[in-house]
Every structure is written in C-alpha cells, then in structure tokens.
Design a protein around this nucleic acid. Structure first.
Lengths: 186, 186
DNA sequence: AATAAGGTAGACAGACTTGTATACTTTTGT
DNA sequence: ACAAAAGTATACAAGTCTGTCTACCTTATT
C-alpha cells in the first residue's frame, strides 16, 4: 500500500465529508494533498474508485472507533449509555478519529448518490448493517427490539443534531427514550 | 403568478427530489418542462433561486399534507398513531401530494449543501422547526417530551427506511418506542 | 389594429469537470 | 551502480455546467 495512495484517500475523505462529494473536484483533492494527477490515476481508475476507497476508509475508522466505545458493555443498560455517550463525543467533535461532526458520511453520500443500484448506495447500506451487527455482537443475549431501537434513535439523533444542533439535549432525550423501551419490555 | 413559473417549480421539485439537486442541470428541467431557457431566467435570477422556490413549494405541500393527517388528533396516543400512520403512507408511496418516497427532501438537500450559512441550509432548518410547531399546536396540552420524541423518531424512521427499506417494521417499532416514552412519563 | 408582455428556439461565452498524454525527475531494490 | 517503479508538472481533449444573447413568435389588453 503506497503512501501517496493513503494520502489521497485521507485528503479525499476529509474534503468529501466536510463539503460533500459533488462539491469537491479531483483537482481540489490534488491541490490539498500535493499529489500529481498522474499519480492519482495510477492508483484509482476514476473518481468513483476514489470515492469508494474513501467510504471504505471511513467505514473502517468508524466501526473500529465505535466497537471500542462499546467494548466494555455487558448489559442492555450499559449499552444504551455507551452508544449515546459515544455519539455525544462525536457530535461535540471530541471523537478524535472521526473529525469535526458533519452528519453521517454514509447518509450524506446516499443523499448525493440516490440511485439505489449504485455501488456507493450499497456501501452505505452495508455500513448501517455493520453497526447493527457490532451492537448485537457485544450484547450477552439477543435483544432485537433494543438493537433496532438504538439504531433508529441513532439515525434520528445524527440527523437532528446535524440540522438543528442541540447535541446535549438530543442525546439525553435519546437515552430516556431507549430506557423507556427497555422498561416496556418487562 | 405565471403558469410557466409554476410548471418550472413543479418540474424542478420532482427532478431535484428524485435525483438530487446537483445531479439535475437547468437544461434537464427545461427539457422535461418544455419551457425555454429565456423564460426560466425571466422568472428566476439563478439556479439557486429555482432551488429555493422548489424548497418553498415542498415545504408548503408537506406541511399542508401533514397538518391534515394529524387534524383529527385530540390526545397524545392518537398523535402517535396519526404521525406514524402518515409516515407509513408516505414511505409506501400512498401519500399522493408527496410523490414516490426518496427520503426527506430537506435532509437530502442539507447533505448536498452542507454550508451552514447558505440560504438552502437555513430553509431546511426552518422546515423541521415548522413540523414541530404543527405537532405542538394540535396537541391539547403542552408535552415537549412527546413532541421532541416524535420528531427524533420521525427523522430516524425516514433515514432508516430510505437506506434499508422495511417501512412496515420501522413504523411499528417507532410506534412502540413512542408509546413506551408516554408510559414512562406517568 | 396596435402595443406591450411573455414566450420559443437555439447559439454561444466562460467557467467548470474528469481523465489522458507528454516529458522529465526522484526513489528504491538488487 | 543501475534499472525499474513511482512520482511531478502541466498541457489538453472532450465533456459538463450556468447564464446571456439574438431573433422571432404568440397572446392579451386597450
């Protein structure tokens, strides 16, 4: 794996995430990274290939960060706390590997590439599925209602904070919400 | 208000919503509507002005449709049912004024125009605020926790269904979730 | 019937976009 | 030391995009 290749992916991801994929041209990525155009096209067949590499990178970083955040969890209540504490630190820009919060890269990208047959769209679906699996795996017993609730609230929280801010309130509300669901399951 | 102007807005909204604003050029709107370019630029200063008009149109149609869907509501439980039944019919393409479901136009547009200072972004914020107000107004007593929960779950449901489908399940889950919150408030 | 307002058709300017080509330089492994 | 691999710099082809311009036509209203 070349250094230049990695530099291109890192630069592209940062720019794509912060400003949107369609707003960022290849030339901007080259300018920011200081890499030559020829080099980019020796590593990637097209802009789309670079986009997919950036999505893959974000997926790996996000899953890795998220799994670590919930790694100490051993019951449902701890899971609720861990998931939303993690989201809170992301929203507040304190989750180092994720950078400044600009919504979910995969939701945003899906909005830009709405064609449901595109490789891009499928990748975004796979990411959401992977998060669900990560939560499921960490729980001692299967609890589909809790996992689906957490994912539903997670998407809601991301979009709400992206649009209207107020991260602290949204996180607290989400926690109360998830706990109310847990209470209702008994 | 000219007929051509309205035709341009209707065509632009349909194309922008279904395929994304950045994917649709002015020329595509002209071709689909059969209107001349000169006419478009006599009604709108720029593409951005057309985008804002399309957002305004969507806002009016959506708020009007949504308000009607919850107009018979007289208590919290009915509100939960009405909100998610309305969303279900939207997701399934049965909400006539809204067209085929492609996520929330405002969330999608925010993802495309992520600059937080843009007129576009502010419009999207205002839309979300207006939905919250509509719910609040229809309830007999103030219940901020319920209203905020409904809005949070609504965003989560929209994004979840947009990405992974499964509308029926997501709606049922959201209803159980909201009812659990209501139960926890006593 | 005349005039003003609104519309059509399409060429085109200018600024973008992605991706290719040419010619040269640096780095790296053996 | 030297050959192969990788990178630089930049011009350019071919396409996109928005927005303007010219020239002509239709439709109301007075």
């Amino acid at each position: 794996m070349s250094q230049k290749r990695q530099l291109l992916i890192d630069t592209a991801l940062e720019l794509f995430y912060q400003q949107g994929i369609n707003s960022i041209g290849i030339n901007e990525v080259l300018k920011q990274s200081g890499v030559a155009k020829r080099t980019l096209y020796s590593h990637f067949d097209s802009k789309e290939a670079l986009i997919l590499a950036a999505l893959e990178q974000r997926h790996q970083v996000f899953i890795s960060w998220f799994s670590q955040q919930i790694s100490q969890v051993s019951n449902a209540n701890e899971m609720i706390e861990a998931v939303f504490d993690a989201l809170a630190s992301w929203f507040n820009g304190c989750a180092e590997p994720l950078g400044a919060f600009k919504g979910c890269f995969f939701i945003n990208t899906s909005a830009e590439f709405s064609d449901q047959n595109s490789a891009t769209f499928h990748f975004c679906q796979a990411h959401k599925q992977a998060i669900k699996t990560a939560i499921n795996t960490q729980l001692p017993t299967i609890n589909a209602e809790l996992v689906d609730t957490l994912c539903l609230l997670k998407e809601g929280a991301i979009v709400s904070v992206q649009l209207l801010g107020n991260a602290t309130y949204v996180i607290a509300l989400s926690k109360r919400n998830a706990k109310a669901v847990m209470a209702s399951l008994n």
